[in-house]
Design a protein around this nucleic acid. Structure first.
Lengths: 205, 205
DNA sequence: AAGTTGAGCGTACATTTGTACGCTAATTTA
DNA sequence: TAAATTAGCGTACAAATGTACGCTCAACTT
């Protein structure tokens, strides 16, 4: 890659990073202005357009990138689970760690999920869908579920986890433990219930 | 109430209604400006301050009012359930009807739940908490659950319902049916799972 | 070596925003 | 009836925003 393209990429990164860094509990992506992001990235407002058509395009980039980061981290965590132990417990712990080290990635996903732009909502939904279908396949194979049931179960699990994540963002580390415990309990409910419903269906044939 | 106070109340209502009416899939409360709301309500921007300290105060009013509306409607729907039939099915159907007739009430709750103001998040959480504890008491009595289990179960149920509501907002009426069906399935999973876990606990003593 | 490209800049402008201030006129109080 | 209160208005202003336009000069192409 030429010097020029390299520099361009660097500036683009600076923009994305600047935007991520400005997110917080008090600041959502949609409340960021183009000028603020440019300022934080150390470039002139008008230079922004050399990289993104508008803030929307930057935001979508962030959602995609964030979702990817999350999935990679969760996948890495899942490898730990293969060593044995409760899949649920280990997944929840991994999730909480990921949350703690990437709060802003989470914030943009959570907020824009119920956001004001259809494109954003769709993008977030796509990311969540990745989690759901990965999990559904896993359960379908592992626990011998009907696709329909596996899907419903996986979706319920993911929703509960994401929701707990949203709550966790507002909590101190000490309070998160209790949250995690309750989440584990809820996930077990779903898993147990799905199993029971599956059995009932199997017996009926 | 004097003529004066009456007129004031009327204008206040006009402001609240104006704000609600401007909400849509493309427009969140936090993206509304004070001037827009005043314009829609037919008053001068500066007159806004005769009724609310700032937009934040208006928003909190809307959350409280919206939450109340929702709870009243759900309660009315629950009376239908007493006539017999699946509690879960009837509740879900009621919920979907409420959603359809008050989409904007829902929008503000859903959006501000993951919003940028701690006060808003707390207010929404308070409203959701109402639902959860009402439901937890119901299950505790009805199904003889441990408080801890009842709470976890109720929370899971409410989260799944609200989440489905968020998805439903983006769907056509025809597509909502499938969503409702899956939601029912998920709620049954939780209920069945909670029951199983409760049994297991009871047997252990 | 000469010519082309394009990332980044500065200037400029029209819009929109929140809100301070002081007035008016109708209602309420005394 | 006289005085006090106050909802609503119009004017005004500083701040911020998105973005059009044209320039520069380093990097790349030919």
């Amino acid at each position: 890659m030429g010097v020029r393209a390299q520099q361009k990429e660097k500036t683009r990164r600076a923009l994305v990073d600047a935007a991520f860094n400005q997110l917080s509990a008090e600041r959502s992506f949609s409340s960021l202005s183009l000028r603020e992001v440019a300022r934080e990235a150390g470039i002139a407002p008008t230079s922004f357009y050399r990289h993104f058509k508008d803030m929307n395009e930057l935001g979508l980039t962030m959602v995609d990138e964030g979702g990817l980061t999350l999935r990679q981290m969760m996948r890495k965590g899942r490898q730990r689970a293969e060593a044995g132990g409760s899949v649920i417990r280990i997944s929840v712990d991994t999730f909480m760690e990921v949350l703690e080290s990437n709060p802003n990635v989470f914030r943009i996903l959570l907020h824009e999920r119920s956001g004001t732009s259809a494109a954003f909502r769709a993008a977030v939904e796509r990311e969540i869908e990745h989690f759901i279908s990965e999990l559904a396949h896993y359960t379908e194979a592992q626990a011998n579920r009907t696709p329909l049931l596996a899907r419903a179960q996986a979706e319920a699990l993911v929703i509960l986890v994401f929701n707990a994540g949203a709550s966790a963002l507002d909590l101190k580390r000490s309070e998160r433990k209790a949250l995690a415990d309750q989440l584990v309990l809820q996930l077990r409910m779903v898993a147990t219930g799905a199993e029971a419903l599956q059995q009932k269906m199997d017996n009926r044939t």
